[in-house]
Write a protein that binds this DNA or RNA. Structure first.
Lengths: 156, 156
DNA sequence: GTTGAAATCGAGACACT
DNA sequence: AGTGTCTCGATTTCAAC
């Protein structure tokens, strides 16, 4: 899934776009001492290779009414039901991330709720009706920081 | 922290930018039947209010050499050391998210590593030298999906 | 706080090297 | 692969409503 045929210029582009998706291509070009067209072609290549998967604006959850963020570890009773459970989780917009994991849990999800009552109701009224086993909830009461993966200056 | 003085237009803008940070303002304007200048001013307002916190390009971790993603729950021996531990975690670029939590753990972090050996070395050689207590690691072996918080059509 | 026009600037395509 | 030019359309500012 990973083609490590990225050179230093690719990394430099990624590093800038990772922090600001709307950075003008010409600014990137000037910072890299190449033409704007070159940057344009590189970025399209990075999209085609799947290195860049899209761009999003980061929205403050509490500004749109979501004041509670929690992680839930899930034990499945019947592990053949992975796909079915995933489908149901996808239909809950409050569930924003979903992982298969090794170790303690079978699955692990991140979700947002309006408040603690709402969170409780999501877990009681939705999760526990999906045929999944026990769950363990971890409420985050402060997001200390959040950033992107490190992008080396010029990794091999 | 949340000013709920957002109207339907604000929500419509947020909904579009949440999915594509580079969507041209004029396209948004046409979709909302207002002028481009209005969209421009609204978006600037949303930035100033802290509703929009920035925009990032999503980069495929495995493309830049990070094949392992894990969550680590942390028990602190000395809970007065929160800030000190956070400072050290910030200096580890592999740590991409950090939360204070209620329940099982005191802190909870997400991190990326090149591979499982690298992950082990991060936990053994870095984490356990920060004066923090026991840790519990949860390795994710598949990110099933990932998306943004739901943005209501026209929430109150 | 919204509009419409004006001017600046970037995006995307092309032929060329 | 990168460059320079060109056209189109987007961004941004401004006076005015």
């Amino acid at each position: 899934m990973a083609n490590s045929k990225l050179d230093a210029l690719d990394y430099k582009i990624l590093k800038m776009l990772a922090v600001n998706a709307r950075k003008p291509y010409l600014e990137i070009a000037r910072a890299c001492n190449v033409s704007g067209a070159a940057i344009h072609q590189r970025i399209q290549k990075l999209y085609n290779l799947g290195v860049i998967r899209g761009s999003i604006s980061l929205i403050n959850p509490s500004s749109v009414g979501y004041d509670t963020c929690a992680y839930v570890g899930i034990y499945l009773n019947d592990s053949s039901k992975f796909d079915e459970v995933v489908e149901h989780l996808k239909e809950m917009p409050e569930v924003v991330e979903c992982y298969f994991t090794t170790g303690k849990y079978d699955m692990f999800v991140k979700l947002y709720a309006h408040n603690n009552d709402h969170l409780l109701s999501l877990i009681h009224n939705k999760f526990l009706q999906l045929g999944l086993g026990r769950t363990e909830t971890l409420i985050t009461f402060k997001e200390v920081f959040k950033r992107q993966i490190p992008i080396a200056e010029d990794d091999e």
